[in-house]
Amino acid sequence: MIGVWRTGLAVVLLGLWYAGTETAVLSPLFFGHPLKIFAVIGEWFASGDIWRHLAITITETLLAFASGTISGVVAGLWLGLSPRTQAVLDPFIKAANAMPRVILAPIFAMWFGLGIASKVALGFTLVFFIVFFNVLQGVREVPPVVLNAARMLGASPRQLVRQVYLPAALSWVFSSLHVSVGMAFVGAVVAEYLGSYAGVGYLILQAEGMFDVDTVFAGIIVLTGCALVLDGAVSLAETRLLVWQPRADAARES
């Protein structure tokens, strides 16, 4: 039943868009034309042009996600376990996190050029802080009783980090996977849009320059589809990685 309503809503919205642009109530110059947009998308996939750009955008996303996550985990564990260092660095971290980091894109373009590296750098700055703060929180919220139990079982300080702090922190990282993967994607696309020579963001930038709104919308739709696929992949990974965590439906069994 819900499926019917959903389909109906989509059909109505697309129909209104189509009717609006057909009758020129909505200017096709600004709102594009649904059929033309889908024609652009069809042509992209038919000619295979889009794959090269998508591959670049996804590569940037994955690299930004991986580098941001790994550095976030390492930095979070380090600062979480040495409160002194954390106290010293705290204002700097707060400032760096408060900064609207998208604005770093031009600087990264100057430092790293218009290729993949500058996109990864921007995505990295977005992902890093999400992971970092989650790990910091995860380290702080390890239950003392679990920690003391591990110590009484003979865990060395090193083993405590690897066997207690890291898994506890990773559970927080995993639960923020959706956000951090999304941020890596945003970083890649925005950086492409602000200066690049390949990627889906670049296609949109090009089309905008020629006032080709249909292609802009086509790019947005392809990006949205891509984001949904990434999100689905994250959900799959999540159910595998967080198998030990109680879920709302499983909690009732015990």
């Binding site: 591990a150 079982l153 003979g154 865990a155 060395s156 066997q163």
Partner: peptide, 28 residues
């Protein structure tokens, strides 16, 4: 080091299965 401690609260590592929790001491 000569004492084992059975805590009042939930002291098991939630990310380990029952067997891996029991194996933790020997692994350490």
């Amino acid at each position: 080091r000569r004492a084992g401690y059975l805590f009042q609260g939930e002291s098991l590592m939630p990310w380990r299965t029952a067997r891996d929790n029991v194996a933790a001491g020997p692994e350490f």
